[in-house]
Simulated scan of single mutants.
Amino acid sequence: MTVQKLKVGIFSRDGKENYKWLLNVLQLAMFQSFVGSVLGTYITNNFRSFTDDLTQCTFAILYHTKKRGRLNIANITDSLYDEELRDLEDHLGKQNVIVLLDDLEDSSDGNMKRILQEQPLIDECADKLILISELEKQAANLTGSDPRMSSTPISQTMQDAYNSIQTKIKRIWSVMEEAVGVSRAPRQRKDSSSDSDTQNKVQSHLPLINPRLYQPEDIPAIHEEIHIPIPENNGQTHNKKQKTPSRRQSFSCCKNISDKMVFFIIGGLVGLLLIILIIILCVTL
Rank of each mutant, 00 (worst) to 15 (best):
I279L: 08
R248Y: 07
E232N: 06
D82W: 15
K113T: 02
N96L: 04
A139D: 04
D90A: 15
V180S: 03
D87T: 08
T157S: 15
R48G: 01
Q236T: 13
D195Y: 15
A74V: 14
F47G: 02
F264R: 05
E177D: 05
T2A: 04
D102E: 13
D197L: 04
M176G: 01
C254D: 12
M261V: 10
K137P: 09
D53M: 13
Y63A: 01
Q117S: 10
Q249R: 04
N141Q: 12
I266R: 14
I43E: 05
K67P: 06
N46R: 08
E136Y: 01
E84T: 14
E118V: 11
G69K: 10
A74G: 01
P220Q: 00
D109M: 04
M158Q: 13
L142M: 12
F264A: 03
F31A: 09
S204N: 02
L285M: 09
I230M: 14
Q159C: 07
D53C: 11
M158R: 12
A126R: 00
D87W: 10
T58I: 02
T58Y: 00
C125G: 00
I165R: 06
Q203C: 11
K16N: 02
K7Y: 04
K66C: 07
Q138P: 06
S196F: 08
F34E: 02
I154T: 05
Q32K: 08
L104F: 06
I226Y: 01
R248P: 05
R114Q: 13
S49I: 04
E89D: 15
I230Q: 12
P147W: 07
T157K: 14
M158T: 03
D103Y: 05
D106N: 13
T237I: 10
Q119E: 09
L129Q: 01
E105H: 10
L206P: 04
N46M: 03
K16G: 05
E84R: 14
R248L: 13
E178R: 14
C57T: 15
M1Q: 13
